[in-house]
Write a protein that binds this DNA or RNA. Structure first.
Lengths: 131, 131
DNA sequence: AACAAAACAGGAATAATAACTATATTTAGA
DNA sequence: TCTAAATATAGTTATTATTCCTGTTTTGTT
């Protein structure tokens, strides 16, 4: 894979934005540095980088896919109230893989644990609204 | 919600096809009974039924969403080799929810655990191919 | 039976993403 | 350092999944 300043910007944007941006969000962020980058370049790079394991793709039932610079498997929390996506430190995952192999004979290569619900901010907010 | 024979066919198709079909697959199946059902009807019904909690939507990084008549939360296994989606009986989920609430203050409403990898059939197949 | 509410078919519209093409940039080697 | 091949890019067009719209049909109620 050859160097390009576009890809460098994309990686930098992902490193800075830890909120699991969509392709469009990455595009908007990178555009500040590279004003005439094309959206196709964003998608091509995100796909390549995901394939190389340099970032991971998270698909949600909501809208477009999201991308995450952390490559180690971990779980995601999607707040149905404010739409933010948070991380959850998770040590359970390896144990789950082993259990799946034992019980179902299925060799896990990747997992995607997406929990949707209400984040603590939104819970606090709604408590405030009621009272 | 009013009765319609289209929706009845959709539900029957889902009950028979336990392989988590996409909307398109449901369309093809239902078309055998209702030859001029429209794809819009499939989507409208799948969305309504999912909203009512009568079925669940599973989003994958691969292509279109899939639908599942089992409403109880359970995990899914997506084989990257043959593309089939399997179920995994899973009692861990409730425990995970509680842990998430304790550690992150996040109230889980729904989870989607998607494990991708190689199913036992494909593993057996590849062993056969090698030898 | 008559009417309102909901559902439908068919097609047009949208949104996310991928594919194409001609030009530009990078990099290894002479 | 220069050059040529490989790869990347911008900009555009195409594809795919899904939703929206409109006029018609079905369903449930009085």
């Amino acid at each position: 894979m050859k160097y390009s300043k576009q890809r460098e910007s994309i990686l930098r944007a992902l490193a800075e934005k830890l909120d699991h941006p969509t392709a469009e969000m990455v595009y908007q962020a990178v555009k500040l540095e590279q004003p005439n980058i094309s959206l196709g370049t964003i998608y091509r790079n995100l796909n390549q980088l995901a394939e190389q394991g340099m970032l991971r793709r998270i698909s949600t039932p909501v809208s477009g896919d999201r991308f995450d610079i952390r490559t180690a498997p971990h779980a995601h929390l999607l707040c149905t109230c404010c739409g933010r996506m948070l991380d959850l430190e998770e040590d359970l995952l390896d144990a789950i893989d082993q259990k799946v192999l034992d019980t179902a004979g299925f060799q896990v290569q990747d997992h995607q644990l997406l929990l949707s619900g209400t984040c603590s901010c939104c819970m606090a907010q709604s408590r405030r609204d009621v009272s």
